[in-house]
Nucleic acid binder design. Structure first.
Lengths: 196, 196
DNA sequence: CCTGAAGACTTTACTAGTGTAGTCTTTCGT
DNA sequence: ACGAAAGACTACACTAGTAAAGTCTTCAGG
């Protein structure tokens, strides 16, 4: 029984997929202006990221939490001890409306990942606080991720890793330059998968 | 008027985001076992992919199509001339149920991106065929993407590009090895953003 | 002390997209 | 010709989100 208890609704089956080189060939056939090398990099990056998202999703599924839950756990962890923020602040950091955060917190409180309580000193405010369970789930997700990520990079020497980090970092800078107003500006189209 | 006509509902505002190095520092603080170099690579990759998805989403928004639409256009393009597939086959290739595909095709036919017609020789079957408009939209999306992608890699020499493609390709192979049954197995958790 | 305004969260109504199950139409074997 | 199978569509339910209205607490001013 590697199956987890709660299955989210699922796509019907595995779509057979073209190899990257085949896909680039298709693009060249249908759109001759394409640069094969650039397209190979971009397609590989895209598929890699997607597969990683799927892998993380499995890990989280095994832990019994959703990626939406994980996103909230992460925000609380990033906030640091005592791992406590208000719903509004959480919503702002994650890029959701407060109303959506209310629902998420409902689910997560029921699952025991966080507690919701009114602030002592100002009873208008509400505190969302990570429970020990929530923190443990996050830590466990990190343990699983660390193993997984190391396995992805097992071929790479420290020098190669360093070059890879540099190359990706330069690409990221270029993207951010091209999205001026967008320090994480998630408008226009939701990216949908939460960042690690 | 750079604004597109049809605005999808949107997240309320830009969440302020940590720099990658800050985020890695947080992970080290909260989970000491983390390898900073690995985490830097993975976080950069993740954020880069997300930003790219946002950028593509803007391009598509300017074209007046959704990423779900684009996914269908791509499948028809990949199928090659005469750019025609049945709903069931499309659903299989994209990883959707036939019912969901019916709705997508409804929208896209209304928008003039595809046509739906019964097959002449076998009147149970339905053919979804790319219109000239649909093909032109896809080509335009590729033109925009090509400019954008070249700008991302403007720093990289051909050698660096080649190394990057190699490194990402090796990582992708490792992921696929770790997801044995998963030739694009989209189960368990939907990746949500369509691959380029 | 009471009243009214502002702030923070919640509730309600609605939208978009998808899965499940059932229905309809056409085809094909007997 | 008839019955069964296949393919697509329809009806319904569910999830997760936004937007806007509502509720409750706090605090300032008369």
């Amino acid at each position: 029984m590697t199956e987890s208890s709660q299955e989210p609704p699922q796509a019907p089956q595995a779509p057979p997929e073209l190899a990257i080189s085949e896909q680039v060939a298709v693009y060249q056939r249908e759109f001759p202006n394409v640069d094969p090398q650039v397209e190979t990099i971009v397609s590989t990056l895209s598929r890699l990221s997607r597969r990683m998202t799927v892998a993380y999703g499995r890990h989280l599924n095994d832990l019994g939490i959703s990626s939406a839950d994980w996103e909230v756990l992460k925000a609380l962890i990033v906030a640091g001890a005592p791992y406590r923020l208000g719903p509004g602040e959480l919503a702002k950091r994650i890029g959701l409306t407060p109303a959506a955060m209310t629902h998420r917190v409902d689910r997560m409180a029921t699952a025991g990942l966080v507690t919701r309580s009114r602030d002592e000193s100002n009873r208008v405010r509400v505190n969302i606080e990570l429970t020990e369970l929530g923190r443990e789930k996050w830590l466990e997700s990190m343990r699983m991720a660390a193993v997984f990520e190391e396995s992805l990079l097992q071929d790479a020497t420290p020098e190669e890793r360093s070059e890879l980090a540099g190359a990706l970092g330069r690409m990221l800078r270029r993207v951010e330059d091209s999205q001026p107003d967008a320090q994480g500006r998630t408008d226009d189209l939701a990216p949908d998968d939460s960042e690690r």
